[in-house]
Design a protein around this nucleic acid. Sequence first.
RNA 1: GGGCGCGUAGCUCAGCGGUAGAGCGCUGCCCUUACAAGGCAGAUGUCGGCGGUUCGAAACCGUCCGCGCCCACCA
Length: 873
Amino acid sequence: MTENSAFQPAPDSELPKTYAPADVEGPLYERWVERGYFEADAKSDKPPYTVVIPPPNVTGSLHLGHAFEHTLIDALTRRKRMQGYETLWQPGMDHAGIATQNVVERELAKESKSRHDLGREAFVERVWQWKGESGGQISGQMKRLGDGVAWSRERFTMDEGLSQAVQTIFKRLYDDELIYRAERIINWCPRCLTAISDIEVEYQDDDGELVSIRYGEGDDALVVATTRAETMLGDTAVAVHPDDERYRHLVGTEIELPLTGRRIPIVADEHVDPEFGTGAVKVTPAHDPNDFEIGQRHGLPNIAVMDEHAIITAHGPFQGLDRLEARSAIVAALRAEGRIVAEKRPYTHSVGHCSRCKTTIEPRLSMQWWVKVGPLAKAAGDAVRDGRVAIHPQEMEKRYFDWVDNLHDWCISRQLWWGHRIPVWYGPNGEVVCVGPDEQPPSGEGWTQDNDVLDTWFSSGLWPFSTLGWPEQTESLAKFYPNSVLVTGYDILFFWVARMMMFGLYAMDGTPPFHTIALHGMVRDQFGKKMSKSFGNAVNPLDWMDTYGSDALRFTLARGANPGTDVPIGEDWVQASRNFANKIWNATRFALMNGATVEGELPPAERLSATNRWILSRLGEIVEEVDGLYEDYQFAKLSEALYHFAWDEVFDWYVELTKTTFQEGGQEAEDTKRVLGEVLDVTLKLLHPVVPFVTETLWTTLTGKESLVVADWPADSGFRDEAAEREIETLQQVITEVRRFRSDQGLQPGQKVPARLALDGTALAPHEAAIRQLLRLQPEGEGFHATATLPVSGATVSLDLSGTIDVDAERKRLTKDLGAAEKEKAQAEAKLRNEAFLAKAPDQVVDKIRGRLTKAEADIERIGRQLENLPAA
RNA sequence: GGGCGCGUAGCUCAGCGGUAGAGCGCUGCCCUUACAAGGCAGAUGUCGGCGGUUCGAAACCGUCCGCGCCCACCA
């Protein structure tokens, strides 16, 4: 091939010019599933790697947060699968008791029906029907995302096996006296009509009114303050601090409770803060958790004044009013009696709301089932404390400890219909029998099963082992428990993670459910704002996948995934990721057109050009780096590293440099085909866990092999060549420098310029052809030669710019560069004159400064000469 | 009230003791035979304020200001 002959690219490959994700994603995913790549074999000899899906709510659809979480889990499991692990990514869904029941009740409401119109059995049937309809939606979304889950093992928290698990552990805990029934103050939602646990209550500051009410008459009168005046109907005492001199004489006496005609005692209790308000507190044991405690200590009666709808039941003028109506009516009545001595309005205080429907919680005395968490939580805390389970990022450990170490007993009964019904029967005389899954309920007249169901987190707490067949001692359980890592959001650290820890340790004889807890943040919009439907910034991941492809969405999410921190994401960024996918696509097309191959051994390093040795050296480094980052769950960093390696180094530099080589042909071109194939092979593998579709399409085309999903994860070759790396770095500097010069001179990128290259005896000599091609340089011509650059190796590139050069512009630029170089020199010199610095700084740093000085001096000399050479304007 | 975290380029964020970085956005030139979803070149920051430690601080310590989140039985 002669120098002047046009470069003839290889015939077009079968790949289209632009990557069209929609054409390949669906079929690829189906093929993966058909071939069973994602299934996990319990009989395998390979080491296990297990991750469970945080089960999404059946009635929902996946939002960006799920897409994010799934991307991370999928990336982890895909890499482990490639590394030769027997990998299980366990799919399934959660029945999500209260949430689902609410959804279906809302559906019924559209038909003007309530669940009571249907009755329990028909209602539950209706929920199952709903589950059947919407469950498929989630599976569909997961397939679109490319989730490599073991579909044949899909589970549902209400399916038969998992229900067995629930009953089994309930029975065990009951027999171990870790589950009990007790009447206590619970968080009651008057809209959902059920008890909820402490963490299902969301507190927020609401404006209320603090009224101070005078109880009693004359010298013995006391003033108490309340934001919930309606509860006074149920007051059974006034409490003061035992050391409070103001009230000491009243303790033990009785006082008149306004509006009721009742007299209530004054008791002394440590709980009262004498500094707060008047130092006297009304005590309503049936409607306030603290007051309940006081009542217990002093043997006070509990007088409930509201029903489950928070309607006043106490006889009298307020009966039948709802709690808010009653509040104002009672304040009005008290005012009429002259009992209101002060009002503070608005009075901002923290009020609990139902996390499901936002209704204000009403503390209510009621009989419920409880888990005694003491020993369970202790074990859950210890497993992290002694390092058997690592929480990542580690800052989250503190939150975890604060919670498990200060946990109150867990209220697990819910007055709902959708869920696991409590396996307890009550006899005609109040006998209680807890029945395990293999036992028959008691027969005979008058035995009835508890009406309540279990908190939904009770069953999801078993997920890491119930999905594997527990309580049966299955092969899967033996193989895949404990899970390798749990990937989930920090928002359910308490709800779910801590409960899995407690149950896992308890049920599996002290073996924690996973080795590592990797907590991710929440997806936010491009301005860092929380995504919510009501705010209008929520995004359906399907929309973006339709427009840009699943890989683009996945890469964007992975790229934002710094451990434990929230992830802002905007459409622009998905677009950028789509561009990246397209770039990979086209770079591979180029490689295919030029005969890149993965066949045969890599050429020996001694034979390879510096360019090839450089890229192979960098390839080894990137494998090492990316591997480390995967192990550390640093998805953002590994994505970033791959992005820059692929785009900047491989596509912008290496591929450009290979063009010259391919033109020239010969052994070097043959070797380059193999090296280019190698670089793409490894790069596609490294990218595959994050962007599975585009890499699979390209890799199978490049290699002719079956699938990347089951390909071997690349090992670091160990090949490093620092000299080649430095040489190419120098080459890059020279080229950049000349390009800048050309750009400053207003030369169009394609315009050929005559140039004289003085590269003999320098490291750049072998790269002359590449330099000429990349810089569009023609053989030397006559006239003025603008010396564009002097690389550190001492080579000179002179451009013949007679007639075209803008001398003023060039002088200006050179003068500016000279100033910068002189400043740099002065700084370096000052540093090297500083004795304290020389004495204390590490040698490496001092050497670096010396290097900077040398370079600055060379730059000054070079620029000076260039200035001298400039013709007069 | 307790705990955790954050304030770095227009926006969103890396960096966490040795010459200020990325993506997007912005400016200029270019349809250079893989890619205009592209190429090349470029501009942009008293790294929240003030003190301190250090030869050297965006980074470590103190303090102040401004945000965010979690926990808590503030009548």
